[in-house]
Nucleic acid binder design. Structure first.
Ligand SMILES: [Zn+2]
Ligand SMILES: [Zn+2]
Ligand SMILES: [Zn+2]
Ligand SMILES: [Zn+2]
Lengths: 171, 171
DNA sequence: CTTGAACCTCCAGTCGCTAGAGATTGTACG
DNA sequence: CGTACAATCTCTAGCGACTGGAGGTTCAAG
């Protein structure tokens, strides 16, 4: 029985105190015994479980996935394939995210490269934002349908955010 | 005056109806005029502005950044440098995020490679999650201090989530 | 004039925390 | 033993950027 206060547990696992309480609330970390004054007291098993949770969070797993991984880890003689599938699924998500961000990165770089650093009126950044068709990347085309959107070009004129105008009824 | 209903605007910009109302609520899109029955009616300037917003969101800009970009784009004769700085800042964030995710990806791949696909008890995935020191990557080391954490090895034993135990006071 | 799709407002929920208010407890020092 | 004060407690709200639903009203076609 190591009998740690929540602050001690926090220091040992580098998980913040409110986060520990939050994990208890969502049922990720079991409620520990309490002192007579209802303060939490943790043992080494809690340290281990919280360490697991933290590491999994650092690796980007969602709480639901961690919940499953924890419950799987409680049955050492069962096949580990469900755990592997969770990790694989997560890896695939990470890979998709990387691919997206690489597209983003290249587009942002192009925008910066193309900008002549003059006036806003000629700034490529503003132009590209205002007109999707000037864009090199392919985002947003995935939901087909909606054919032949905007072809407006040239002046970039939006309604400016002024004070809340008095909502004049029309017709 | 194109005089579009919110549904029409939604179809033309591929932004969902509740999202359009949300943008109005947070002051990103100006409140349009209304019919006598208080339904919104949009013009082509709204279409353009919402298109700008959507494109910027697709490129990952935060609403605050979009707000600034929009207000910058309203002054075409001013220098575009502030806009460029916003994009550069965003690009740097994207690059940081990519680097993080690449670390994650390599660690997840290692975990899957090392797993023998046997029982949970020998699963490398579970072991690595339970013991940070088995990990190849460097995350979480950035907050120095707290030296020489866990050295527990072998059995992975956590307190299992059972029903809420009756919180026995100790000492 | 009737129908029914589209619109309205308001509110709650998402995810994983984080921060605060205001009250209570634990502990170290004198 | 008394006191001070840090740490803990519960409860609630907020973040960002939406998304969905309930319950009521309006528009436009037939
Ligand atoms: Zn520029
Ligand atoms: Zn684009
Ligand atoms: Zn395995
Ligand atoms: Zn690690």
């Amino acid at each position: 029985m190591t009998d740690l206060s929540i602050g001690e547990l926090s220091r040992r696992t580098a998980v913040k105190v409110p986060t520990i309480r939050y994990y208890e609330q969502i049922g990720l970390l079991p409620a520990p015994p309490r002192t007579e004054g209802r303060q939490r007291r943790y043992g080494s098993d809690h340290v281990a479980r919280l360490g697991f949770i933290r590491h999994a969070r650092e690796l980007g797993f969602e709480v639901e996935a961690i919940r499953e991984l924890l419950s799987l880890s409680a049955a050492p003689e069962r096949p580990c394939e469900p755990a592997d599938r969770i990790v694989l699924r997560h890896l695939e998500g990470v890979e998709r995210r990387i691919a997206q961000l690489e597209l983003l990165r290249s587009e942002l770089r192009h925008m910066l490269d193309d900008c002549r650093h003059g006036q806003v009126g000629e700034c490529r950044i503003i132009q590209v934002l205002a007109d999707h068709d000037l864009c090199r990347h392919e985002h947003g085309r995935m939901e087909s349908g909606a054919p032949a959107r905007h072809a407006r070009r040239g002046s970039t004129r939006f309604p400016v955010m002024a004070g809340p105008d008095p909502a004049i009824p029309i017709r």
